[in-house]
Amino acid sequence: MRPFHYERPRGLEEAIAGKTEAARFLGGGTNLIDLMKYDVERPASLLDLTRLEGLREVERNGEGALRIGALVTNADAAAHPLVREHHPLLADAILAGATAQLRNMATMGGNLLQRTRCYYFYDRQTPCNKREPGTGCPAKDGVNRIHAILGTSEHCIATHPSDMCVALAALEAVVVVRGPSGERRIRMEDFHRLPGDTPERDTTLDAREVVTAIEIPAGDYGRHHTYLKLRDRLSYAFALVSVAVAMELREGRISRLRVALGGVAHKPWRVKEAEALLEGQAPEEECFGAVADRLLQGARGYGHNDFKIGLARLAIARALHQAAAAAPQSHVAKRIA
């Protein structure tokens, strides 16, 4: 990797002050350091956040919203009693990702900001608009098994690879960030962006902003939720397609439904009209197809990933079934339930 400065800011203010375009915040380093070794990320300096105070708490406020500090590790978040009790969907999604070793290092902030796993993005000897704007997108007619089917552009068809973020989207979380001009709250649906003609930008976070926490509003899904992840082996692989469902059932009818898809777009994919289709309805399997159709409206494949459209349809139906039956997908059992 290229030589860089390593700094340990003593407080948030110092971290923000030190953050230039050429600097990167360092969380667990599980993604950033890899990319530096591959010469994809070339920061002039690393601002190590991991020793900062006050970003490691998990707490619930008066309205029942859960606030998870940006430096809480993925492993700690998934194991935290408040998370397990109030948002098991989040715990499940985190546990569906990576491995125990990686989750022990990975932070909530870093997970939000992890970059795509597009093969070309990682390989500096190939063109890639996300890595080097204007060089082209070889994935479109190349190897694109893991690429997007929704919200793509002619410039980039990459996906956001996070499992955690798919659950956060379904839970309508808010990303709390701090910049030179103070604090800002960004809704999950606005945090990641579609590639458009600037695929080099993954999120709406400003270069000088730092993520300080993730907030999840109160919601009562009981056991009516699931995180279903389909992949090329039963653990330690990114999602081909994943589905997070949070369902509120009242007297046998769906009073509130949130569905987010992973592995299919540059951001966790939600379509509110699709969710509305089932609200007020009994969770009958016959209706699930319509939800899938609406969620996947406009989907297109690029060759190797054509199958994702069909697979997503099947996965959505199964996930809705799991949520309705209060039988969330286990991430310990070596099988899809």
């Binding site: 190939t126 190349g142 893991i146 082996r233 039963l234």
Partner: peptide, 19 residues
Amino acid sequence: LGRWMNHNIAEYHIPVHAD
């Protein structure tokens, strides 16, 4: 490109314990 693209063991899959 005439090139293997999944040249790392995150994307070149071999069985893991769960399999």
